[in-house]
Computed example of a mutant assay.
Amino acid sequence: MELKDFENLWRSNIADLEETQKFWDMRADEFNSYSRNNEGETRRQQILDLLTAKGILRNDAEILDIGCGPGKYALEFAKKVKTVVGIDISPRMIQYAQDNAQRQNAANTVFELSAWESLNLDECGWNKKFDLVFASVCPGISSSESLLKLCRASKGACFISSFVERSDELRDELHRVIFGRDPEQRWGKNIYYAINILWLSGYYPEISYRDAEFEHAWPLEKAVELYSSQLKRMTKSNADMSGIEAKIAEYLGKVAENGLVYEKVKSKIAWLYWCV
């Protein structure tokens, strides 16, 4: 297969950025808390160890963190490098990142509200600006264009991570209950496309894998809102979800424990690192 074949396979629709922003705003509280748990700290340290071994976290380095969330990676980078710029589509994520930076006196960080899919590097003056362009499990890396934009912004190296396998036990069961079928297997395609597009574009990506298990706990009302949004996004449906939301609420009400809904997640995450 040629480069155009993979570009055609990996097409994204950026017309729903407003809906995407609402979804990640809804999860900002969770991610700000999750960034401090043991599993999150372990994964973060593993990535820091990798990048340190690559010699990219230098005291004169400038880093761009795409989909920075509440700043968990950016603030760790800031302890080792000259400057870090973090961008995210969610205003609430950016507010958390700014608050966390202020709390940690991380004056060498800047957090900006921006969607990577629609960001113009020329207008930002970001062509070949950063020593490392970084994106950890960022849904904004969703097409050949958004992937190769990392290369254009970097003068040193790039890093992305993405799920290649993932099982959300409760959400998958909800999908079967609501739609009468297993959810479509979404994981692994992005990394498959990314490796081939990078290789055919003249880059040499290194890949490694990590297993991860974690558990979420949401108040029942928040869980209904979250799963309703997720199932709509998974089915790419424009249909009225009100009836489906009632079914979700009924099902989650039965499995909730003391007003909380628990979700166990098992996953395999791929890391891609390459020089430009």
Rank of each mutant, 00 (worst) to 15 (best):
E2A: 11
L3T: 15
L3A: 13
N8Y: 10
L9V: 05
S12C: 11
S12F: 10
N13S: 08
I14R: 09
A15I: 15
L17N: 12
Q21T: 15
W24F: 05
W24T: 00
W24M: 00
M26V: 00
A28T: 02
A28W: 01
A28H: 02
Y34F: 15
R36D: 14
N37G: 03
N37E: 10
N38C: 06
E41V: 11
T42M: 13
R44G: 04
Q46T: 09
Q46Y: 08
L48Q: 04
L50I: 14
L50K: 08
L51K: 07
L51R: 05
L51G: 05
A53Q: 15
G55N: 08
G55K: 06
I56V: 15
I56W: 11
I56R: 06
L57H: 01
N59L: 11
D60P: 04
L64T: 09
P70S: 13
G71S: 05
Y73Q: 13
A74L: 08
E76K: 10
A78Y: 03
K80S: 07
K82Q: 10
V84F: 05
V85L: 04
G86H: 07
I87K: 02
D88M: 00
R92W: 05
M93W: 02
Y96I: 04
A97M: 00
A97I: 01
N100A: 06
A101Y: 03
A101Q: 03
Q102S: 11
R103I: 13
Q104C: 09
A107P: 03
V110C: 14
F111D: 00
E112I: 10
S114V: 02
W116K: 02
W116H: 02
S118M: 02
N120K: 05
E123H: 12
C124P: 03
N127L: 13
K129R: 14
K129A: 13
F130W: 07
D131N: 13
L132H: 07
F134H: 14
A135F: 05
V137Y: 15
C138Y: 03
G140H: 09
G140V: 02
I141A: 04
I141M: 06
S143M: 07
E145T: 14
L147I: 06
L148S: 07
K149P: 10
A157S: 12
I160R: 10
V164I: 15
R166C: 15
S167T: 14
D168K: 07
R171Q: 13
L174R: 07
L174W: 04
R176Y: 10
R176E: 13
V177R: 09
R181I: 13
R181Q: 15
R181C: 13
P183Y: 11
Q185A: 14
R186N: 12
K189M: 12
K189G: 12
N190F: 11
Y193E: 10
A194Q: 04
I195D: 11
N196K: 04
L200R: 14
E206P: 00
D211C: 06
F214K: 03
F214E: 09
E215H: 06
W218M: 01
E221M: 02
K222Y: 08
K222I: 05
E225V: 09
K232Y: 07
K232G: 12
M234T: 08
N238C: 11
N238D: 15
D240C: 08
G243W: 07
V255Y: 06
L260T: 02
L260G: 01
V261W: 01
V265M: 01
V265R: 00
V265F: 03
S267M: 02
S267R: 00
S267W: 01
S267P: 00
K268E: 03
I269R: 08
I269W: 05
Y273T: 07
Y273K: 02
W274N: 01
